[in-house]
Computed example of a mutant assay.
Amino acid sequence: MGVYAAELSVTVTDSKNRLLPNIVVYAEPLDKSSMPNEAAPLDHSAVMDQIHKQFVPHILVVQKSSWVNFPNSDSIKHHVYSFSPAKSFELRLYDGGKAKPIQFEKAGEVVLGCNIHDWMLGYIYSVDTPWFAKTNKQGAVTLDLPDGDYQLKYWSPLLQNADKDKAIQLTVKGDKQQTIQLNDELLPALADYENNDELTDY
């Protein structure tokens, strides 16, 4: 892989050419020997907050081996957990910023829940590369990465089977534009729940 930075501009659309926001896009170099290790250290933890009984952001993407902090900005307690193979953990009932940061040593999808508020659902997606981002409202993302050969991958919890585990082989040499068009429409997102929890003291 070369040492010159290039700008890879990616647009993600569905099968009907509609622009898709909040899609994780990441580039894995075919030669990982020269890939820099830029995982967030403990003193620069990524943040998955809890605001208005929701995980914020709904989807957090981090580099493998990064640490994630789980503050609770609500005035009530939460009990965060995950049973995902990529990271299984539990942060028992707590409020404020008392929870210890968690390290995500493996790549993959981690589904978050709260034992107190069943509707709370969030995702942490850990990738084995420092070049990643989520698409904006226009379905676009820009990655600054060295010239070289890559697999361009994408992820969302709403992908259907035809679009899971897909990758695009591409060579980056200077600035480049790439469109990712899904084969299927995204699965419908879960409806928002009303904040009518009876356990107001927790």
Rank of each mutant, 00 (worst) to 15 (best):
H44D: 00
K16S: 11
D43F: 08
P36D: 04
S66M: 08
K100A: 15
L8W: 06
N161W: 12
L42I: 14
Q181L: 03
P188W: 11
G122A: 05
S45G: 08
V80T: 15
K176T: 12
R18W: 10
F89I: 04
I51A: 01
V12M: 10
W131G: 00
E109C: 02
N22Q: 12
P101K: 10
D165E: 14
A46P: 11
P21Y: 09
H78D: 08
Q181H: 03
P21D: 12
P157N: 13
V110T: 15
Y94R: 05
Q181K: 13
Q50H: 02
N196D: 13
N161L: 13
S126W: 02
Q181F: 03
G2A: 15
E109W: 12
A167Q: 14
K137V: 01
S82A: 11
P101N: 14
S15R: 14
A39F: 08
K164M: 14
Y4L: 12
L170Q: 09
K166D: 01
Y125D: 00
W119D: 13
Q138H: 09
F55A: 01
S34N: 08
K53S: 01
P146W: 05
A46H: 15
V127I: 07
A140N: 11
V24R: 03
R18I: 14
T179Q: 09
W67G: 10
K164N: 10
V110W: 01
N115D: 15
I76D: 08
I23K: 07
G96N: 14
T135R: 04
L152G: 11
L186V: 13
V25H: 05
V47S: 00
W119R: 07
L121G: 06
D184M: 09
N22W: 00
V68G: 04
Y81S: 06
K16M: 03
K87H: 05
D201C: 12
P29W: 02
I124L: 11
F132G: 00
I124K: 10
Y26D: 04
L20Q: 12
L158R: 14
L8I: 10
T142Q: 10
V61C: 10
I168S: 03
D201R: 15
N161T: 11
H52Y: 11
S156L: 07
E90A: 03
D144M: 00
L145W: 01
H52R: 11
G148Y: 00
D197K: 00
Y26V: 01
T13F: 13
A99C: 12
M35W: 07
R92A: 03
D43I: 02
E198C: 03
P21W: 09
M120S: 04
A99E: 05
I180K: 03
Y4A: 14
D95H: 15
K100C: 08
L159M: 10
P146H: 09
E90C: 04
T129H: 05
W155R: 01
P41R: 10
I76Q: 09
